[in-house]
Design a protein around this nucleic acid. Structure first.
Lengths: 234, 234
DNA sequence: CTGGGCACTTGATGTAGATCAAGCAACGCT
DNA sequence: AGCGTTGCTTGATCTACATCAAGTGCCCAG
């Protein structure tokens, strides 16, 4: 019941990317797949190495961070998500480090069978394309926040997105230091900003649990007019 | 000889993306294509609008910049290059402004026929995938420079990449203010840095013409140890 | 219970680079 | 010629954030 293959298949069928792929083809992929287990803090893949393939997270949480660049976190990859798509087509070494933030299971799908599937199934191709575009778009958005807004605005936006609309509270997905790196600020700065938001009555903080007290004003803080680089008045 | 269709076809056949696509299919694309001409400073596509399709630059130069975010330039797209690939699969409005930096001709390929081609030709799918990956990788690299290094290092890297290995000099592709935005610094900062490099004998500047005087030391400047955010000594 | 590591906070200080403010040169216009 | 624009430079100032340096509370191992 719990053969390694069974686990792998279980992970794959939950990926939107493979939704439309016939079972038989999936079985083919499973054959070549590799299951990797990493404990908290252990590397899943290291920047500079040759890319192992497409990675799908079964459970746990993986941090994708720039090795240089002060460990800036590009993305946190949770269960049911994938990373490393870009590496299927680029010969270059990985540009990021992938580290497990807690006990994590990752399925590694090598290139060859995926490329073959790509030839055969245009729907898979479309799904992959869509996924890549999504990634690209997110990165551009990140770039936007990073350059257009200050730390305060970025945090406000992050918190607003973090707690589901309709909910009042949510947990940070990772230790504050990691969240700080995700936001592109020093952990001290994050600490101070959270405190500030608390003091202003926008949120309340208890450990990793954040409760929104005033969504209205938080949204306002997200907007905060911050004249950034080259802000030429049109 | 110079029908609009002929021009379009001429542009398309030069794109690596369509290299492997049979002539008949290309003709199909040409039918739906639209040719857009923009003078210097005119917008080719504006952020927030619905994406018009895949854009291919016939001649000229297009600036892709973040509308908010102080006009940070993400990419300069020259003749024979494309942009807007991501918009084929995302329903969202454009995240960037596209502006002509000089007299520019752009071919706009609407979504529908491209998606159809995608179904039919897996090689085109691969080419598109590869192009997207390339973009993604470039963005990550940009992110890296932006967070890991200071303005000085970024400029040094830019200049090194600008002049072909083997050549001694090159022209900036755009006015200095635009280059500054590309590097993510204020134009004043760029000016000062160029002056500084000149003073140090690394380069010489004459208008837009840059001559490398000492590649060795320029490479050193690119490395410049710059302890950035969260630079935890391993 | 005790000591040593996290994860986080808090304060003081430093700095890269943005912003503000002139000013200059070259290049079309009319 | 006269004049506005555009592109670039240079200097003075300001500030958001990083960095450095101590703490504090807490959990786990001995």
């Amino acid at each position: 019941m719990h053969s390694a293959g069974g686990v792998t298949l279980g992970v794959l069928v939950n990926l939107p990317m493979f939704r439309q792929v016939p079972r038989a083809q999936l079985a083919e992929l499973v054959r070549g797949a590799q299951v990797v287990h990493a404990r908290r803090g252990e590397p899943v893949a290291r920047s500079g190495e040759p890319p192992p393939g497409l990675m799908a997270v079964g459970y746990g949480l993986v941090k994708l961070s720039l090795s240089e660049g002060g460990g800036k976190v590009l993305r946190l990859v949770g269960a049911g998500e994938t990373f490393g798509e870009a590496m299927l087509f680029l010969e270059q070494p990985l540009p990021v480090d992938a580290t497990a933030l807690c006990d994590t299971l990752v399925v590694v799908l090598p290139r060859a069978p995926l490329l073959a599937l790509l030839e055969r199934d245009p729907r898979f191709a479309r799904a992959l394309l869509a996924s890549l575009c999504q990634r690209l778009h997110e990165l551009v958005a990140d770039f936007q926040s990073a350059t257009a807004y200050g730390a305060r605005e970025r945090l406000a936006a992050y918190l607003e997105a973090l707690v589901e609309p309709g909910a009042r509270a949510a947990e940070l997905p990772a230790p504050k230091a990691v969240v700080a790196a995700r936001l592109g600020v020093a952990k001290e700065t994050l600490s101070r900003l959270l405190r500030q938001f608390s003091a202003e009555g926008l949120i309340s903080v208890a450990g990793r649990r954040i409760t929104l007290l005033d969504r209205e004003r938080l949204a306002a803080a997200r907007q905060g007019i911050k004249p950034a680089a080259g802000c030429q008045p049109a």
